[in-house]
Design a protein around this nucleic acid. Structure first.
Lengths: 233, 233
DNA sequence: TGAATTATACTTGTATTCAAGTCATGATAG
DNA sequence: CTATCATGACTTGAATACAAGTATAATTCA
């Protein structure tokens, strides 16, 4: 056997590894908005050639997380208020629709029981991250929670689009949560949503979720005033 | 000057050209669902090397229009009933939301006047394509019409996602429209929608649009029975 | 004869090489 | 001193070369 220690080499292609690594670096703001990056630089960082990096960049280009200036270089996309609001709008539309489609099965079918436990786990994880001040962990738990909400709608395409929208929203959220100020409110809204959902009040649930998802709109202006260099327009 | 005749060489990158060409070939069904394709084959067809083809494929992969089987080849994605319904659901959610967001300005602001003329032009184009039996032209005019509906919402992100969803829906529609049977109904629904919209009846407009967009659900089963080899699952 | 094994001819994945555009720098001509 | 034009050091874009996995055909051995 070529690999007696089971030190399994990453069997994902280098392109995928590059994609995930670069994307994560952008979303976590380790690669800050507006920063110039170069294919060679990324390739060296990731110990690979330019080829897989280029393929990863190609995907990040579609997601508008990177911009390429031909023959001049690339840069991490600046945050655009317009783009953020567009993404937020799309997310609200889809997540509300998913909630409406799923609410029937929330009680009746198999989803209900299994989901409710996991929802509690997600909430617990979020509370814990809030206590320890782990912003990144908080956002992960938040994503977990919202994914569970959508799960019952059984629409992977929808979930993946929402995830794509989240990419643009998360950079704002990461910045706005630096002081972990409003996290308590967010968690409370999650809990409220769950209780209304188990009570079966569709309209109230939709209203709560809509309100919850619009909260970001206030943050944008604040964040922009704190980090003007991260913004475009 | 190197080019005295103004024979402007395509200034788009080869990657982009490849992407558009391959995508168009898939959507028009010239590359039929399930057909095996190879990077070399496509590169030869397009008179370029594998490199730009690979970059194009990378994007088509994200859109789920192509599948790659490592070290074995690629194939044009089969039509999936599940995927089609997921895409249709997403489209309905977004297009309805856009309509609701835009309906206010349909009368009042600048959009109204400019749009209405173009809407009539789009409808005319659609009627003409219906007469001449031009399926591809019909779908293009249809897309034009729906783009105009969404335009007033001023959300490019939303429009681009709907366009992505349309890719999966269009293959079904292209097949179902081969006999140009229901086109009259579709056009009439468009006209109705416009008149209700100018009348300012939001709820009725939403109801009409929803109904219009759900029409595809019936077609899928019919198309599948006619072209079973194009389907997965 | 038949099953296991080795060639072989494909494929995609990745690295490397070459081409061509951009920009800053500095020499050069006026 | 100023404006213009080479020059060179970058960049991304694209082509080619090489590596490695897969499936099929050919071959060997029992």
């Amino acid at each position: 056997m070529a690999n007696p220690f089971g030190m399994e080499t990453d069997r994902r292609s280098l392109s995928e590894q590059a994609y995930e690594a670069i994307r994560e670096a952008i979303l976590s703001l380790r690669l800050e908005p507006g920063r110039a990056v170069y294919e060679n630089e990324l390739a060296n960082m990731l110990n690979m050639s330019r080829t897989p990096v280029r393929e990863a960049v190609r995907t990040l280009l579609v997601e508008e997380l990177i911009e390429v200036l031909p023959q001049r270089g690339m840069k991490v996309a600046l945050i655009s208020e317009k783009k953020v609001e567009e993404a937020r709008f799309v997310r609200e539309s889809l997540e509300v629709s998913a909630l409406r489609a799923a609410i029937v099965g929330w009680h009746t079918n198999e989803w209900g029981a299994r989901l409710k436990d996991e929802v509690q786990a997600a909430l617990a994880a979020q509370r814990k991250s809030a206590e320890t001040g782990d912003v990144l962990g908080f956002l992960e738990a938040d994503e977990w929670f919202h994914r569970l909400l959508m799960a019952a709608a059984d629409n992977r395409t929808l979930v993946s689009i929402v995830a794509q929208m989240r990419a643009h929203l998360n950079r704002v959220r990461t910045l706005s949560l630096q002081e972990l100020k409003n996290v308590q409110t967010l968690i409370e809204e999650h809990e409220q949503l769950v209780s209304v959902l188990t009570a079966g009040d569709e309209e109230r649930a939709v209203s709560l979720l809509t309100h919850h998802l619009r909260r970001l709109q206030q943050d944008v202006a604040v964040v922009r005033s704190q980090y003007p260099l991260y913004f475009r327009d």
